[in-house]
Amino acid sequence: MSDTDERPPERSGGKTRRRILGTIGAGGLATAAAVFGRSAPAFAGNYGCCNLAFTPGSSRYIGWSSCTSYRLCPNCLGKYIWYCSKSPSMDCGCCELYSGNYNWQYSGATCYYA
């Protein structure tokens, strides 16, 4: 092989081919996202098996201990505490504090292995 061999100059269609392949690849990724992006119907609830008014991340989600002890809502009229079975091996406790007309004020939950 000669030391003076050089790579042939890139033909002008090279960029076009790369663009086409890139478009095909992007389209494939978008298709995959569309197919796998759909979530199957789930019954996990927004915290374990609890269907809470306020989820973790909300300022009104105060956690199980605070919810069950009323600590952050001295003016709440009442609380609703119930336990649910998420799976054969896991249960959850669900807590809601409410004011008049059963307006939810705070939520809390905990999950544990049964």
Partner: peptide, 10 residues
């Protein structure tokens, strides 16, 4: 069942 329980909804 309970209204607070999504496994109950299932």
């Amino acid at each position: 069942l309970s209204t607070a329980c999504t496994s109950c909804a299932k």
